[in-house]
Design a protein around this nucleic acid. Structure first.
Lengths: 336, 336
DNA sequence: CACGATATTGAAAACGTTTGCGAAGATCGT
DNA sequence: ACGATCTTCGCAAACGTTTTCAATATCGTG
C-alpha cells in the first residue's frame, strides 16, 4: 500500500515540492506551463494529496461529526442523509457516530470527535441530560444541536415547532368533530416531548376538551413499546374510551396500529390516529398515517449552514431556528 | 477555539513532550509517579490528543470509509448501523458517504476517501460497473465489497447467497401449492439480481413451472417503480394471471402491495407475495411481508473482520463469504 | 568503591503538507 | 540602458504527534 507523495512527484518533475503544492492548489504564483506539466505528471503517477498532512498545517479537517442515536432509525437516517448531502456540496465529509442514546457513550463519542479535530459537530442529543455532559467540550468545537430544544439558550440549535405541531394535529382532529382525544406517549425526558404534550394540552383548553394521557415509562419511543402500551390500554378497558389518539411519535403510532390490528380494531373506523415526524414508514401502503411533518431536509440544511457560519466566524454567537411543521393528511383520520 | 497541545502540558509539567506522550500512551518506560502526575495535569488542562497529528506519524487513521447508495435506504442504514457498531469496538470510526448510486459520484467519493487516508473502505457498490471505476485505486486502500458479487474474483466481498434465497422462496411457494409464479424485478445490472433471477428460474425448472418475468426498465428498485409496474400489469390484464409473485426486492414488493391495495386486490387472498432483503419496513403491522432475510448484522461483522485482516496483514489475499439467507414467513403467502 | 545493568528522561527526526519570505530572472517604462 | 516592478520558483519553518537514540541517574553486586 505504498502511496506516492508530493516529494515523489517533485523529484521526477525536477522542482521543489512547494511548486507541486502550488500547481495543484491553484495558486496564482506559478507559471502556467509548469502547472500543466505538473498536473499531468501527478495524474500519471497517481498522486493523491494526503489530506491528513494538509489538515495538520491548515488547522482544519473539513470534516463534520454527526452523532445521533442510531442510524437505522428512519428519522435519524433521513436527517443523516440530508446532512451529508448539504455538507458535501460545501466541501465537508461526515464522520458518523451512533450514540445508542446512551449518555456515557454519547459523551465518549463526542470527545472522540473533538480529538479527531473535526471542524464542527452536529448532534441529535439523546435527551435533556446530553447537554450537561457535552457542555465542557463545547467551546472546543463548534456544535449545533438538532431536533431538540435546549434549556441553555446560549447554544445554537434547530428544531421543528413541536408545540405548534401537536396544536395543528389537534386542530385537524377538532375540525373533524373529535372531542375525546387521548395523548399517547412521553411527556418528559426531552424538551421536544414536553412541548408536544404542551401543544396538545393547550389545544384541549382551547377546544374545551379534557386532556388525557397515557404515559410511557420507557425512555425512548419504539414500535414495540407503543404496541405494548396500546395493548395494555385496549385490554384493560375492552374498548378505547376515545375517538382519536394523538401520538407523540410515528413509531409510537405504528405500535398502536399493530395493537389495533391484532385487537381487531380498524383505523380510522374505530378511532382516528395522528403521528409526529413523518418518517418514511408512514407513507407506506396500508399504513397511510396522517402525521405532522418535520422538515428534515430544511433542518439539515439550516444545521450545516449554522455550523459553517460558526466555523468561519467564531464570534457569530448562537442562533435558534424553529422550523414550521406541517400536517400531512393521509387516511388514518375520519370524522366522528 | 484554542486547543491545548502536548507541548502546553509538557511546559507546565516541566518535562519534555516526549514524556507526556509516553505517560498518556501507556508506555512502560516511564516512572509511575510522573505518569500519574502528568495524567492528572493533562486532565486538568483539558488536553485532548490531536489524532490527525498522530495519524500522520503512525501512518494510520483508524478510520473506515463506508460508501453506499443512500443512507436513508432502510437496507443501507441497517448495514451502516452494524458496520459502525463492529468497527467501533475494534477502534475504528466511520466516514459515511452517499454515492447516490451514481458512478461518477461514487468514484469521486472513493478517491476522496483514499485521499483522507482511511485505513480501509467498505463499499456497497451501486452496480456492476462500479468495480471498473474503482479498480485503479484498489491497491491503494484495502477494500471490501458488500452485498454484491464481483466478476473479478480476486477481490474480497461478502454477500448473501442470492441464488439460494429465491430458491428458498420458491420452495416455500411450491410447498403451498403454487404453480403459476411471476418473477417481478430486475434481472440485470448487478450480479446480485442476476443470481436472484437464476434461483427463481432454476426453481421453476425443478418444479416444472414455466418462468415468467416482468422486467423493470429502471436502474434501481423503489416503491414507486414497483408500484408503477404493478399497476401497469394489473390494468393491462384486468387481473393477475398468477397465484404468486416473487419480488426481487422488498421495496418492489411494497410497490406491489400499494398497487394491489389501490386495485382492490388483497394479499394473500388474491395472490401470495414474497420479498427479498427483509428491510425493517417488512415487519410493520399491516405489511407483514414474507421475505428472504439477508443477515445484515453478520454481513457487517464479516466485512469489518475481513477488512481488519487485510489491513493488519496485507499479504492475506482475497476472500469471499456467501452468507446463508433465511426465510422469514409472515402473512403475505397462503396456500392456493 | 567501582562498574555494569537498568530505569527514566530528553533531543531530535520524521510523517506530508502549506505558506511566508527571499532570490533570481524577466519584463517594462522612461 | 537602467532601475523598478512583476513573475516564478526554492528554502525552510510550521502543524502536533510518535519513536529512536543517546544521556543521565539509580542501583545492586562483587
Amino acid at each position: 500500500m505504498k502511496k506516492v507523495t508530493i516529494k515523489d512527484v517533485a523529484k521526477v518533475a525536477g522542482v521543489s515540492y512547494a511548486t507541486v503544492s502550488r500547481a495543484l492548489s491553484g495558486s496564482p504564483e506559478i507559471g502556467e506551463e509548469t502547472r500543466q506539466r505538473i498536473i499531468k505528471l501527478s495524474k500519471e503517477m497517481g498522486y493523491t494529496p494526503n489530506s491528513v498532512a494538509r489538515s495538520l498545517v491548515v488547522q482544519s479537517t473539513n470534516i463534520f461529526g454527526l452523532v445521533l442515536g442510531r442510524i437505522n432509525n428512519p428519522f435519524m437516517s433521513e436527517i443523516a442523509f440530508y446532512v451529508e448531502k448539504h455538507a458535501r456540496v460545501r466541501g465537508y465529509n461526515l464522520m458518523l457516530c451512533n450514540s445508542g442514546s446512551d449518555l456515557d457513550h454519547e459523551e465518549e463519542t463526542y470527545r472522540l470527535l473533538v480529538g479527531r479535530q473535526v471542524d464542527g459537530i452536529i448532534i441529535i442529543p439523546s435527551g435533556v441530560h446530553s447537554y450537561e455532559r457535552i457542555k465542557p467540550y463545547l467551546d472546543t468545537t463548534p456544535t449545533i444541536f438538532v431536533s431538540e430544544n435546549l434549556r441553555d439558550l446560549r447554544q445554537s440549535y434547530v428544531t421543528v415547532d413541536n408545540y405548534k405541531g401537536t396544536m395543528m394535529g389537534m386542530e385537524y382532529l377538532h375540525s373533524l368533530g373529535h372531542k375525546k382525544i387521548l395523548y399517547f406517549g412521553r411527556r418528559m425526558g426531552s424538551i421536544t416531548h414536553q412541548l408536544r404534550a404542551q401543544g396538545y394540552e393547550e389545544a384541549c383548553n382551547k377546544f374545551g376538551i379534557t386532556p388525557a394521557f397515557v404515559d410511557s415509562h420507557y425512555t425512548h419511543s419504539s414500535i414495540k413499546k407503543g404496541y405494548l402500551i396500546a395493548m395494555e390500554l385496549f385490554q384493560s378497558q375492552g374498548h378505547l374510551g376515545y375517538t382519536a389518539i394523538m401520538a407523540s411519535t410515528d413509531t409510537m403510532a405504528l405500535g398502536i396500529i399493530k395493537a389495533a390490528d391484532e385487537f381487531g380494531m380498524s383505523i380510522p373506523e374505530d378511532f382516528s390516529l395522528i403521528g409526529f415526524d413523518n418518517i418514511n414508514f408512514s407513507g407506506l401502503p396500508k399504513i397511510n398515517l396522517t402525521t405532522i411533518e418535520q422538515p428534515k431536509n430544511a433542518m439539515a440544511a439550516v444545521a450545516v449552514d449554522m455550523l459553517i457560519n460558526k466555523i468561519t466566524d467564531p464570534a457569530v454567537g448562537y442562533s435558534h431556528r424553529i422550523m414550521e411543521p406541517s400536517l400531512i393528511v393521509r387516511s388514518s383520520c375520519a370524522p366522528v
